[in-house]
Structures are given as structure tokens and as C-alpha cells.
Amino acid sequence: MKNYISLMLFMFQAASASFAQDSLALKFVDGHELKLSGRAFNSNQNYHRLDSSDRKLLIPRVKELATNSAGLSISFTTDAKTISLQWRLARWLDQWNMTPLAVNGLDLYGLKDGKWSYVASARPTGLNNSAVLVKNLDGQMRDYRLYLPLYTEISEVGVGVPTNATINKSAPPANQKRVVIYGSSITQGASASRPGMAYPSIMARSQNIEVINLGFSGSGTMETEIVDVLAKIPADVYILDCVANPSPQMIKDRAYGFVKKLRTLRPNTPIIMVESIFRETGNWDSQIGARTTQQNMEFRNAYQRAMGDSDKNLHYIFSKDLIGNDHEATIDGTHLTDVGFMRLAEAIGEEVKKVIGK
């Protein structure tokens, strides 16, 4: 009840300015009352990616990043002709190589003619935000999906529609597959232009699967504790996209044991190991280039060693062609633009299709 009252007060305060410009009466629905996807636990207290009991097992930086809402989405059906949004951030974050929209904002997709299509973005301006996302819709009952911020913690969100409109929680898709991805900042979403353009979310839309994004910026270093967290999440496939952060020596020391422990805990679930993209800065900085090559080599060695144990459900994706060869897929030589994410989603998505039999 306390959280509900807090949300209602927040919505009233944040709405007053925007509603003065629009006489349309709106009703707001708490995001927790709609369908929340992208995490494996239920809670109406937060929009964290991992439960508090799991977070306490992890190193401090991962524990903090797990409160970011990367990969989480809210799905609903409505016949509204206008969709508004109000949200509150626990903290505002600026990233020099990311847009404020991707870090602190949200974007909306709609299902039209059987395909998810971009609808609108919600511009963030501070800790308390409100926006009219879209007007003049056709009033047909449709499915919508709202992607939450990639790199900060969102504490409250409400979806607003006219009082005469219907809004309901989306029905769960029948027999939907689930993919869990563990990785680094690229997995988390750096540097997509908006939340829905992180590659795990692109894959989820294109294949109609649920993807749980466990990318931890700068901190995907294969600690053994994270394996226990991954294995607790039921999945049809696990993807290990975690080469970019650990040093070559760390990969040599940790990767094989990481894979073997996950296999022990999940003996029948496919695992896909993904090499690091080749950092564009490595085309010019020979030290960076050599480091990335060595990282991938150590990861490949771990894969070959695991395959020597007759693991028939282990798969591997090489770095070649993951983001193309035109050197135009990054924003800063490391992190991806939307072009890079589309290419990466396609490359990894093709292997996912083969593995889960799509």
C-alpha cells in the first residue's frame, strides 16, 4: 500500500505540468500490474535484474549494476489513441558515449502486422519524468512493449491512457523460449541509441523469445559466484559473451572452470560461447589489438578443452564478421552503435535459432 500511495503521489505531481497542456483525462497503471519480462523473479518492489538474495553473492560493482533495468520490458494491450508515461529514476547518470535516452529514458514498440515496430521514445529530463509518447493512434486493440533504461535504476513507472480506453497485461506467449546472456557493457547495451536497440532486445523481438540480459559493464569477469546465479535461472540456452572484460590470464584461469561448473549445474542446457568483437581501436593501437586476440585465443582454448570432455551441447561463435568488416559499427572504437547491434544480434541470433530449433 505504501508503494502504491507513493506512486500515485509521484504521478500526480509529475503529471500536473504536462496535463495543463492537454485536457484529455488519463488513468495510469503501475508497471508492476502489467507484464514484466527480462528477469526470472517476481517482485512489485523494484525493477532490478537480480533478486536481492542473488545480488548479495556478487562483487560490489556487479551487485550495483544488477539494479540497472537493462533488458527489462513492460508489455500491455490497449485500444488507447494516446499513450503517456511517467517514471522516476533512483539516480541520473551521464555517459559520454551514450545518449541520455538510452541511459535514463524508455522507448515503446508496437505489434503491427505481426511485427514489432518502433513507436516512440520517452525523453528523460531529470529524476521525475513525464511524457506523451504517442497520439492519434487508430484505437485498435494492440500489443505494446516498453523498454526500460539500460544504465540506471528506475524506481517507478506508470503507463497512462485515456480513461475511456482499455489497458491490460499482455498474455504470456505460448511455449516461449528463454535465453540468458551473461556479458559485459556491450551486452548491457553500450552504446545503443535507445533501450530497445541493445542486441539482446533485438534478438527477443526478432525471434519471439524472452532474453534475460545479465550484461555488467566493465565487470563481466567470470567470477565463480555468478555461475550459481545463472544456473538458478531456467533457460533454453545460456550465452557467455564475457570475453571483453577479463585479461587473457583471467580467461585462462577462469573460463574452463566457469563453463564446467555451469554444465554441472545445468547438464542438459545448451551453452553458446561468444568471442569478443575485435575492437576497432585495435586496428591502430597494436597493444589493444594484441590483447583482444589473446583474450579470444584463451577463450577458444577453454572451449576446446571442454569439448574434449565430450560436451555435445557446447557451441562456439568466432569473432570474425560479428559486427561486419567496414569498421563503422562502433561509437568509440569499442562499444556498438545501432548498426553494430543489428549485426551482432543477427550473428548470435542465427546460432540461437540452430540451437533451440527455431
Rank of each mutant, 00 (worst) to 15 (best):
Y4H: 14
S6Q: 15
F12R: 15
A14R: 06
S23Q: 15
D30I: 11
G31E: 01
H32Y: 12
E33L: 06
F41L: 11
N44I: 00
S53A: 10
L57H: 12
I59H: 14
T78N: 01
W87T: 06
R88K: 13
A90W: 01
L101D: 13
A102Q: 05
W116G: 09
R123Y: 04
T125P: 04
T125M: 13
L127Y: 12
N129F: 01
A131T: 15
A131K: 02
D138C: 13
R145T: 15
L150Y: 12
N164Y: 12
V180W: 00
I181P: 10
Y182F: 03
G183D: 03
T187F: 00
G189K: 02
G189H: 04
A190P: 09
A192N: 04
S193V: 14
P195G: 06
A204Y: 01
V211R: 04
N213V: 05
N213R: 02
E225P: 08
A231P: 11
P234H: 05
A235C: 05
V237M: 10
I251L: 14
D253V: 09
G257N: 13
K261T: 10
P270Y: 05
E275F: 13
S276L: 08
Q287A: 11
G289H: 08
T293R: 15
A306D: 02
N313S: 01
H315T: 11
F318N: 12
S319Q: 09
N325W: 04
H327S: 12
T330K: 10
T330N: 07
I331R: 07
G333K: 08
E346H: 08
E350V: 13
E351T: 07
I356W: 02
